[in-house]
Design a protein around this nucleic acid. Sequence first.
DNA 1: TGATAATAGTTGTTTTTGTAACTAACAAGC
DNA 2: GCTTGTTAGTTACAAAAACAACTATTATCA
Lengths: 146, 146
Amino acid sequence: MAKNDDFDLQEFLPYLLNQAAEESSLAFQQAYKNKYGMLRTEWRVLFHLGIYGRLTATDIVDRARIHKTKISRAVQKLVDRRFAVRQRSENDRRQEYLTLTPAGTAAYEDLKKIANDYDARLESQFTKDEAALLRVMLRRLAGMES
Amino acid sequence: MAKNDDFDLQEFLPYLLNQAAEESSLAFQQAYKNKYGMLRTEWRVLFHLGIYGRLTATDIVDRARIHKTKISRAVQKLVDRRFAVRQRSENDRRQEYLTLTPAGTAAYEDLKKIANDYDARLESQFTKDEAALLRVMLRRLAGMES
DNA sequence: TGATAATAGTTGTTTTTGTAACTAACAAGC
DNA sequence: GCTTGTTAGTTACAAAAACAACTATTATCA
């Protein structure tokens, strides 16, 4: 079966990263998908608003490195579900500030707990030092220079 | 700006993994996308065939953990581009064996070189030990128990 | 001022993906 | 043999992503 070849897909970092990312997203995805009918971009926006408070769409684009059309549609859905509200800026009427409603905050708090638990479970596969190193390496690979 | 909150997205493993995976895929993606008009699933199939030789679609599904409809469409495109050929099995006429054509092999060899170079470049950000540990950790997270 | 460019965000169109239902071939038990 | 179930792979339709073009507002500078 195995042809003699010197490339090992199981060692190729982009491949491994993708497999790990996909697998690790799965369980958590169930939570926000089934419980709140959200998509990945939506929980990301929700979390950004939960963590940082009031932000504009562009703020989120810059922080999350997600394209603005995806953000725009995710925001629209969060607003539709009454998880967030828009407020047009007085200084610059092009931009609008986004904040979570009480319902959005509640959803965020709930998902935050689930995320923390899940993260702890993932991390428990490693020693504390390993986990810390892993995060440093991932941030470097992601270009979020520590 | 920063609301006082105890959750840090920059530490959440699924998020970090996604960011790192996306970023690390980018440069290599340009190669197969621009040079050969391939999608991610297509280069994965191409690589599987390049590495292992003759495989059925189901073999690839099992190894790559990609859904069979995606494999089916990726195979179709590789066949359309004359990078692979199908050969129906004599024993079991439901399955078909897939192999690379000379053109497919050439594309694979070319991309393999690019992949190796790129991997080396990514890896050069770390020490040898760190890189080895990273791979072990990613495999564990991906559920590919080493 | 007024023309041109830049920015915030949205909308429309095309590609890809996800999910389910499907065809064809084989397997197992009666 | 014939019914029922399983497996390999494809296809159809709905959901989501990518990409480009758009509106509205603000900035730049002759």
